[in-house]
C-alpha cells in the first residue's frame, strides 16, 4: 500500500486553476520529487497534502487513511518542512522544537527526549539554547528541517527546502535528506532545481500549470521523450577505421568526430560503455578520456513544456 496516494486532486483560486486533476503515489521508503517551475502548482499541491489547504475535488490517502484538513490522525503521520523558515526567531532552537513536539501529542518527557535527538540529527546541539535570531541562514534551515522530524513521520514533505540557501548549506541539506531516506522515511520533495531531483529522487513528477505532465524514474522520463545518452571519447588518433568499428556496434545509434574527439549517441550509455571501451582497446585506439552525458530532467522538461525550469 502506498504511503501517499493522491487521486484527481484539484484546487482553484477564483479564475486560476492552481492544481488540475493531479494524481500520483509514493511507496513506502520512496523519495518522490515534484519538479516544476515557480507557480507550477507545487506548493498548492503540498498545501493540500499537508492538510493546510482544502481541496476542491479528488482524494488523498496517507497510509490508507483518508486525509483532510480536519483528520488529525493522518496529519500525525506527516512531517512538514515549509519553504520559508517557519520558526519563532525570538525563541531558542530547543524551545521551538519542544513547542511543536507538544503540538504533535508528545508528552513533556517525550518532547524533551525527541528534541535532543533532533538537535543531534541536525547538528545544533551545541547551539540549542540560543535564540534562532542568532542563527546563520544554514543553521535556521537545518532547524526548519528538524521541526519536520519531531513526530517521527511516515511521510516527510519538504517544500523547496533549499530556496535561497548558499551552496554549502544546500549540500548539507541534501545530505540530511539523503540520510533520512536511507533510514526508510518516505519523502515528497518539491523543487525547481533539476539537480536536486536527480540526486535525491527515486521517481519524479513533472508539474506545470497545475498538471502533472510526466512521471517516472529519471530514465523513464528521458526515454519518454526519446533522448539518447552521449558518450564523448578522446582518442590519440581517431581514424576512419575506428569510426567504422564503432558504427558496427549494435547499441550505437550515431557516430561523429571532430578532431581527436569522437561523439557517440546511444540509448543507454551505462550499458554500452564496457562494449565500446573493449572494442576500442581491441582496435588499438589509444583512449585519452571518456565522458558520458545522460539527458537530464531539464531536457525532459524543455521537451515536455517548451520552456526551461527556471523561466
Amino acid at each position: 500500500m502506498p504511503i501517499l496516494e493522491v487521486r484527481g486532486v484539484s484546487k482553484r483560486y477564483g479564475k486560476n486553476q492552481a492544481v488540475d486533476d493531479v494524481s500520483f503515489f509514493i511507496e513506502e521508503g520512496e523519495t518522490y520529487g515534484l519538479l516544476g517551475p515557480n507557480g507550477a502548482g507545487k506548493s498548492t499541491t503540498i498545501g493540500m497534502i499537508t492538510g493546510i489547504l482544502e481541496r476542491d475535488s479528488g482524494s488523498i490517502t496517507v497510509d490508507g487513511i483518508e486525509h483532510s484538513v480536519t483528520n488529525r490522525k493522518s496529519k500525525s503521520l506527516i512531517g512538514f518542512v515549509p519553504q520559508e523558515l517557519a520558526l519563532y526567531h525570538d525563541l531558542s532552537a530547543r524551545d521551538n522544537l519542544r513547542f511543536f513536539a507538544r503540538l504533535y501529542g508528545l508528552s513533556k518527557s517525550e518532547a524533551r527526549t525527541k528534541t535532543e535527538e533532533v538537535l543531534e540529527t541536525v547538528g545544533l546541539s551545541d547551539r540549542a539554547g540560543e535564540a534562532v535570531s542568532q542563527f546563520s541562514g544554514g543553521m535556521a534551515r537545518r532547524l526548519n528541517i528538524g521541526l519536520g522530524l519531531l513526530n517521527s513521520p511516515r511521510l516527510l514533505i519538504l517544500d523547496e527546502p533549499t530556496v535561497g540557501v548558499d551552496p554549502q548549506s544546500r549540500n548539507s541539506i541534501l545530505e540530511s535528506v539523503h540520510t533520512l531516506t536511507r533510514g526508510g522515511v518516505s519523502v515528497l520533495y518539491t523543487t525547481h532545481y533539476m539537480e536536486e531531483a536527480e540526486r535525491l529522487c527515486d521517481r519524479v513528477g513533472i508539474i506545470e500549470a497545475g498538471k502533472i505532465r510526466a512521471e517516472g524514474t529519471q530514465r523513464e522520463l528521458v526515454s519518454q521523450v526519446g533522448e539518447d545518452d552521449t558518450v564523448l571519447i578522446t582518442l590519440d588518433a581517431p581514424g576512419e577505421r575506428v569510426l567504422d568499428v564503432l558504427r558496427a556496434l549494435e547499441p550505437i545509434d550515431e557516430v561523429s568526430s571532430e578532431g581527436t574527439q569522437v561523439r557517440l549517441l546511444t540509448s543507454n550509455a551505462r550499458d554500452a560503455l564496457p562494449l565500446i571501451l573493449d572494442t576500442l582497446t581491441r582496435a588499438g585506439a589509444g583512449i585519452r578520456s571518456v565522458e558520458v552525458q545522460e539527458p537530464d530532467l531539464e531536457a525532459v522538461f524543455l521537451s515536455l513544456t517548451g520552456k526551461g525550469l527556471r523561466e
Binding site: 498545501g47 490522525k73 496529519k75 512538514f80 515549509p82 511543536f100 503540538l103
Partner: peptide, 15 residues
Amino acid sequence: AGGTLARLLASPIPR
C-alpha cells in the same frame, strides 16, 4: 506572515 501558522495548520491541532 512568519510562516509558522502554516506549520500549526499542518499539525494535528484543530483550527
